[in-house]
Amino acid sequence: MSNTKTNPSEQSTVDAATARATEALDTNPLGVLAGGLALGAIAGALLPRTDREKDLLRPVGAKIGATAVAAFAAAKEAGRAEIEQRGLTKESARDQAKSLFENVVKAASGAASAGAKTAKQEATGKADAPDSTGGTGDSVPAADPHKQIMAAETDMGSIRSAV
């Protein structure tokens, strides 16, 4: 035993620190463990590696790398098999994307036409009068932008479920 005497204020500081550490360990043991692992990893990263460590750990690193490559290949093959099982191909995905794009273009075109027509009506201060067919005289019937957007969303949903 040492003959050194501690100052009462130093002893109370040590006691308080010990009490805080004990409380932290009791209330959050996983947090303390994670903190200890983090400190250990930092210390290990800062210390230089010895040749002996390199020689001993090289086979372990090679094995881990080979296992990771094999796991990646297995996951890739399982994903490919699942896609094939669902009948999905590059061509079907391309067709769905093309259909989606066409519907989005139609919806945007219909919305732009409706917006231009409304702006024209507001600028002239009058609505188009119906022609003999009951329409407004347009050579092409106005597309319903809401229906086109709904069709595009349906196409998008089928692409999401396919992937």
Rank of each mutant, 00 (worst) to 15 (best):
T13W: 12
G115H: 03
V163I: 09
L25W: 03
E84C: 02
N7V: 05
F72H: 01
E153G: 02
G87S: 04
D155W: 00
R80A: 15
Q148F: 09
L100Q: 03
K76D: 12
K98E: 03
T67P: 00
L30C: 03
T50Y: 12
T118I: 08
G31Y: 02
D138E: 10
P59V: 04
V60D: 11
E102S: 06
V14P: 00
A123K: 06
D26L: 14
K147L: 10
I149P: 01
A43G: 05
E77I: 03
G36F: 00
A108W: 06
H146N: 10
G157C: 05
I159N: 02
V105E: 09
S113C: 08
T6H: 12
D51W: 02
A151E: 15
A114V: 09
L33V: 10
A16I: 02
K63D: 11
R160Y: 09
K106N: 04
G35F: 00
R58K: 12
P59D: 09
K5E: 14
M150W: 08
T22S: 12
A41V: 04
A66S: 11
K54G: 05
T13N: 10
K5A: 12
K54P: 00
A111L: 13
K90N: 15
G115F: 04
G87M: 03
K120R: 08
A112L: 13
L37R: 13
A119P: 03
P145H: 07
T6A: 10
I83G: 13
D131R: 02
D51G: 07
L57I: 06
L57K: 04
M156L: 15
L100K: 01
A70C: 04
I42P: 01
S132E: 14
T118G: 11
A24D: 12
A142R: 11
K120A: 12
G135W: 08
F101A: 15
Q148C: 01
K126H: 07
G137H: 01
E53L: 10
A119H: 06
E82L: 09
A119N: 05
A41L: 11
G36Q: 04
V69H: 03
E84L: 06
G44S: 13
E153R: 15
A142N: 14
D131C: 04
G115A: 13
L46E: 09
N7F: 07
S92L: 06
G135Y: 07
A151D: 15
A123L: 07
A162H: 11
E102C: 00
A114C: 01
V163L: 05
E10Y: 12
G40I: 01
K5F: 11
A116M: 05
I42C: 04
N28G: 05
T133K: 09
V60I: 14
F101N: 15
R80F: 06
S161A: 15
E82R: 15
T133D: 11
S113D: 14
A71H: 05
D131F: 05
D155G: 02
E91Q: 14
G31I: 00
R86Q: 13
A116S: 10
A162L: 09
A112G: 03
M150Y: 11
G137Y: 00
A19G: 00
A78V: 01
G157N: 15
A78T: 04
A78K: 05
K90Q: 15
P29H: 06
M156N: 13
T136V: 14
A129R: 05
A162P: 02
N28R: 08
E153C: 06
